[in-house]
């Protein structure tokens, strides 16, 4: 069980992560039934505090909270007083005054979620839904869940699963959280990217590094494509989109090199034709839609463990 906040995949032990996956599996089974709504978080308020755009993560958290009967307040920076210059502190204190029990925060600044959790601006549980280029722990959990579901459903962890993470590692919070969590669960991770899109210090990460996608693709169980984050491309990281696509994109010829049981993942949103071809995205090996579906169950599990009871240590 986890308690307090969920800010980083580092907050999770192997046991607590596997516990969340097990809880999510049960919740997914329940919500696949005739009645999707559980009374568990009735009366709790959850604020989706989104300073950056999002489709999947926001509706996934909203849907998870609603299936557990919590009240959801959606906040996006556009159209709020943030555009008038209100600070994170004042926004947080406003949410405190309104009585939020949990804040799901996405922010373009790395460390924003931790800042919110460490200061006393707000008492609520803080869940990091992506902070800058730092972390996105619930994405890593839903990816681990999806991999386990497809490749290791009867085993305990992900021991022996070979995972390629391909593309813009430098700007990717998804990659960072996934490397931490997936290696913790026993998987072997290889990062494939042009040198310009690898972060400083990547040699200290518990991963292999490769610049040759064609060489690696035949020997993996999972290929996880990352989005080229055009909004964070303030430098010339590669000569042209065509050249990137040719060397690091998942196209039909690379798709054919994958082993029979291998799966294709993408955290979304996809740039079809850039890092992943439309054919690959829609192939039978693609589990991208499963990732979205599993995201709801994972977020239900996180909300349940953080909000489902009195704080640890409280007596009845």
């Amino acid at each position: 069980m986890i308690s307090g906040h969920l800010l980083s995949a580092e907050d999770l032990t192997k046991e607590s992560a596997l516990g969340l996956l097990a809880t999510a599996k049960e919740l997914a089974a329940i919500t696949d039934g005739p009645n999707k709504k559980l009374p568990t978080l009735r009366g709790k308020s959850i604020v989706n505090l989104f300073f950056e755009d999002s489709t999947r993560t926001r509706i996934s958290f909203e849907s998870a909270a609603k299936r557990l009967s919590a009240d959801v307040i959606n906040f996006s920076a556009k159209g709020s007083s943030v555009s008038k210059g209100e600070s994170l502190k004042d926004t947080a204190q406003t949410l405190q005054a309104i009585g939020a029990d949990a804040v799901v925060i996405r922010h373009s600044a790395s460390g924003a979620a931790k800042r919110l959790a460490d200061t006393h601006w707000i008492q609520a549980a803080v869940i990091n839904a992506g902070d800058g280029t730092h972390e996105h722990p619930t994405q890593a959990l839903l990816d681990a869940f999806t991999i386990k579901q497809h490749l290791r459903s009867s085993e305990n962890d992900l021991t022996g699963v070979r995972i390629l993470i391909v593309g813009d590692i430098l700007h990717s919070r998804v990659a960072r959280s996934n490397v931490i969590l997936l290696t913790k669960l026993g998987a072997t991770v290889t990062l494939v990217a042009p040198p310009t899109l690898l972060p400083v210090g990547v040699s200290n990460w518990p991963v292999e590094i490769s610049y040759d996608f064609d060489k690696e693709i035949a020997n993996c169980d999972v290929v996880m494509m990352l989005r080229i984050q055009l909004e964070r491309m303030n430098d010339s990281f590669f000569p042209s989109a065509q050249e990137y696509s040719k060397r690091y994109g998942l196209n039909s010829s690379r798709l054919r090199k994958l082993s029979k049981s291998a799966i294709v993942m993408h955290p979304g949103p996809m740039n079809r034709g850039l890092e992943i071809s439309a054919e690959s995205a829609d192939d039978l090996k693609s589990v991208i839609i499963d990732q979205v579906k599993n995201g709801v169950a994972i977020r239900m599990a996180v909300l349940y463990e953080l909000l489902g009871g009195a704080p640890i240590g409280a007596q009845r």
Binding site: L38, P39, T40, Y304, G308, G309
Partner: peptide, 21 residues
């Protein structure tokens, strides 16, 4: 049949792990 999510004393005590149904 696991009943954890339906308990009326959920908010009075720490959350319990959900068991398989």
């Amino acid at each position: 049949l696991d009943i954890t999510l339906h308990r009326d004393d959920l908010r009075l005590r720490p959350p319990k792990p959900i068991l398989p149904t």
